[in-house]
Structures are given as C-alpha cells and as structure tokens.
Amino acid sequence: MSLRWPNPFSSQASYAIPLATPLRELRFVILDTELTSLNPHDNRLLSLGAIAMTGTKIHLGEQFYRLVNPGIPVPSDTVVVHKLRSNDVARGETANEVLTAFQKFSEGAILVGHFVRIDLNAIRKELAIEKRDFAQNAIDTVRVHRWIVSRTKCAEDVGHAHEKLDLSSLSAVYGLDIHDTHHALEDAFLTARLWQKLLCSIEKLGVRDLDSLLRIGST
C-alpha cells in the first residue's frame, strides 16, 4: 500500500513513497530559510539552505544553498539577525529560479524542518506569485519532539512542556553543540543533526516506517 505523497511544488505530478518504507531507507531533505521578517503576511524569502539525508545519514556532499533577491529592501532590524544586507542579496537569483532548483534537489525526499510551517508558508507565497501551486506536507521536528516528550513518561532527558523550542534551545536539550548562526544552510545542518537524534528516539518508541512517521510529525 502506498500513499500519494504530494510533490510540494505541483498539484499535477505526485510521486509515491510506499508507506511501509522503513525510516532508515527514507530520503529526507532538511531545509531552513531566512526571511525578510517574521510577519507571515508580507515577508519574503532571502535564502534557502538544505541538506539531504538517508535515514540518519547526513550526505555532506548534497547541500543546497541559494540566495534570493527579494526585489524589496531588506528591513534593517532583521539584517542584524541573518546578516544579509540588500546588496548581499542583490546578486541572488529570483525566488522562482531558486525554488525550481530546490524542487529538483528535493525530488523523492520527505521535507523536514524546524517549525517548518514558517518556511513552507514563505515558499508557498513566493510560488503563488508565479501562479505555482504548493502542497504543504512536511515533517516538523518540533512536532516530533513534542510527541517524544508526550510518550516519555519520565521526560527529564528532553526537558518538559514549557521549555523553549527554538532550534538553538532544542539542540542544546539534545546535547548538540549549538551555534546561533541564522544562516539557512548551517541551520539546516543543525536541524539535520537534531533530526538524527529524533529519528533514533522515535525508532526506540516503535516508529519504524513512513506511515507512522507521518502520523506523528507531519504538519
């Protein structure tokens, strides 16, 4: 049995990953974006970083990093965070070009991100401008983490419900060396390392295949 796993970039073509595919054989693309602001209504994409994984294995050679020229000035209050100034992104490509390349990079993979809804929302808006469609299914590491906490009665290892859930804080909880970079590729890489840990944890809790992963983590 297999699920029609929608290609996030097209309502037309979809491809199928069998639901019974074991976690260890699933291909993931872990992504992160930098945006002009956190306002979901008018923010624009500035950069997209991603790295590929198979199961818990991070493919160091399969990296994706592109700068996007948003066509609007970058608000100065966010430059402090992501260090991307207007003239830095001026040499960037259009969102359409970057997302076309990303579509190719992420083909056949399950998207994973930290609070991934924010990234997907930004991508979807950019695609909407070009009248392109976007389906927003992806795995959110925060959801998976919450599920683990809810399943682990004795949750002292992974903190408790009122903890901070941003990428740096959660990475620290999982014992990763943190680096607060706000660089889309580096954050995607850190998310990938967090994903390694989460995968091992959910595997121990009985999550073995795509079917059960989607139940606990898809957004």
């Binding site: 818990t56 294995k57 991070i58 493919h59 160091l60 050679g61 390392r193 840990k197 091992c200």
Partner: peptide, 14 residues
C-alpha cells in the same frame, strides 16, 4: 573528500 562523506549518528550502545 568532504563532499563524498556522510555524517552518521549512533546513539550509545547501538
């Protein structure tokens, strides 16, 4: 070489 590599994670006792 770096680009041909992968980074793998093995929890304690695995």
């Amino acid at each position: 070489v770096a680009r041909t590599m992968s980074l793998e994670y093995f929890p304690k006792d695995s």
